[in-house]
Nucleic acid binder design. Sequence first.
DNA 1: TCCTATGTTGTATG
DNA 2: ACATACAACATAGG
Length: 288
Amino acid sequence: MPELAEVEYYRHRWDAGLGQTVQSVALHGQLRVFRGTDIEELQRTLRASVFSESSSHGKWMMFRFARQRRFAWIGIHLGMTGELHCEAANFSPGTHDHFVLQQRERALVFTDPRQFGRVKFHAGSTEPEWWAELPPEILSKKFTVQWVEEFLLRRGRAPLKAVLLMQQAFPGIGNWMADEVLWRARLHPALKAGRAALHALRLWKELRWVTAKSLRIVGKDFSSPPASWLFPHRWQPGGRCPRDGTLLRRATIGRRTTAWCPRCQFRGAERVPAAKRKAGTPGREAKE
DNA sequence: TCCTATGTTGTATG
DNA sequence: ACATACAACATAGG
């Protein structure tokens, strides 16, 4: 499920283990989530180290470990179905529990049935490249209106929805957050990004608003956003726009199921009227 | 049986 | 080189 707010929620589930020594590291089942990682070194380095720090960036989480003056970093991405949880010390892993950090009083577990998630590893005295090179976070100073505008222009021909999902510009935004932002900015998900660049300020504001609020609501204790959000209505059959009561529409846009209000989310005047479209001919819009 | 799922990556094409 | 579109990955549930 995880987008940035859920990621933050899951990250804190390992907090109980902070300051505690890792006694052993268990890798279980398929090793797919470790693709590209030296698992031998990972296990060797983490054993007897202290779990000393935890942070997140978009959909990535980073956990730091220390042994004497040596540091190790674990990066975890939850993919589509990943979760972190904390279990009793005598925990025995199930089929989808791929990564277990055993501590004296608990087990820190990474579970992921579909295995789209991944675990990265780095040891040394400086931060790993894959952590240092991440794009500006949405709530950071470096995430400016210009940043948004320039990216929209560069991806000018792609549908706005698809562009909002691009992690190199909007780290942490996923399917439901993108829909929420578009609905609040009153922009149609199929609008060409180049056209949406005119409304970069609005998008920037809503990106930051939705991000901040989601962290407080979902990130804190996995609560659901209130009925005034698009969120609780978007998958409901017969779901209606909380702003004007219009029946929501759904379609596949940018390869993902998208919900929007056909009344308050305009495509804008740029839409060339399909003057002579024969009845029965599919339009440019994705099938519904 | 077929469809869906809050994600990313590799590959083909323009 | 750059942007865009799509299949693929693996599993569960309706």
